[in-house]
Design a protein around this nucleic acid. Structure first.
Lengths: 161, 161
DNA sequence: CCAAAGATTTAGTCTTGGCTAAAAATAGTA
DNA sequence: TACTATTTTTAGCCAAGACTAAATCTTTGG
């Protein structure tokens, strides 16, 4: 991770309309891709945790079968993920019992939820219709850095909200 | 995939500030998650294809080693992905030669690139700084539906651009 | 023209996040 | 209580996308 700049070739035509990488060092670009890959790794975890929090708040408990139904995956898949989330200390669960969030899990859920709402609000504020705002926010929320979220909030503050 | 609506429970407190799912049927939510999962599957493919296009445009050819460097992954990883992209008829490649895009690949790259630019422009328009706009766009671009992109363009049209 | 450097390929491993099918436990009801 | 339905768990499968190490091919400088 230290071969900055100077790559043998002569960087021809700056290509102003096209290539994204035309204005970026390989290193900087690589780090962006790494960041995106990292975000992708957390996506699924955050989705599960946020949904578990929703279920607890709505129905008083989070059952595996409900998580599966809402996520659109099989029960077996949820079960395996529950083990992982336990290992990550985001939830606790005993055999054949429903799922609870740890402090860390609850915090992650709150965070996710807040991001989700900001993203939906921003999408709506720039003219995206409801259905698409909700659907796309599900993916977008995981890729917004704190700085980007902060900018969204400032924007919403200024522009009506 | 047909157990719409009516889920045994009584849906208590609407919970207006919190749970995302509070205003959405399990089905609708599941389909949002499915959409996000699908987008996630295409992300990597699009990243590779877009980057290959960039390299071809900038340097006249896309070498495996350059793709690896810019993406921040190993050469072996790129090599395996090249096989997959070939099978998907997005690129062509002969052993030990550099990589070319098919028509479909070129089209996908153009598409990706356009989305990328729109997303960056929108982020900047709502006040995100350059570095974060570029970094976050790398992840966000893959989760914007055509409708959302169209809304972004309308917004940029109206607000300076 | 040939040896070293550089690029590509192959082989084998790992984790994640899905799936199905079937077994075991719990819950609900006649 | 016993039977049935539901839920949870287990086992085993698969593909994607990353890795390292080592083999093979190409390019290049002396």
């Amino acid at each position: 991770m230290s071969d900055s700049g100077a790559d043998g070739r002569d960087t021809p035509a700056p290509a102003e309309g096209g290539a994204v990488s035309a204005r970026m060092s390989p290193d900087r670009q690589a780090s962006h891709f790494r960041r995106a890959r990292q975000a992708r790794e957390m996506e699924v975890v955050e989705d599960y945790v946020e949904l578990i929090a929703d279920l607890i708040d709505e129905q008083g408990e989070a059952r595996l079968v409900d998580v599966a139904r809402r996520l659109g995956v099989s029960g077996a898949t949820v079960n395996k993920m529950v083990s992982r989330l336990s290992e990550m200390s985001l939830i606790t669960s005993e055999p054949y019992r429903s799922i609870f969030l740890t402090e860390a899990g609850r915090a992650m859920a709150e965070d996710s939820r807040a991001r989700h709402h900001i993203v939906v609000a921003l999408l709506r504020a720039v003219g995206v219709d409801d259905e698409n705002a909700w659907a796309d926010a599900e993916g977008i929320e995981h890729h917004c850095s704190p700085e980007t979220l902060a900018a969204f909030e400032r924007f919403l503050e200024k522009h009506g909200k």
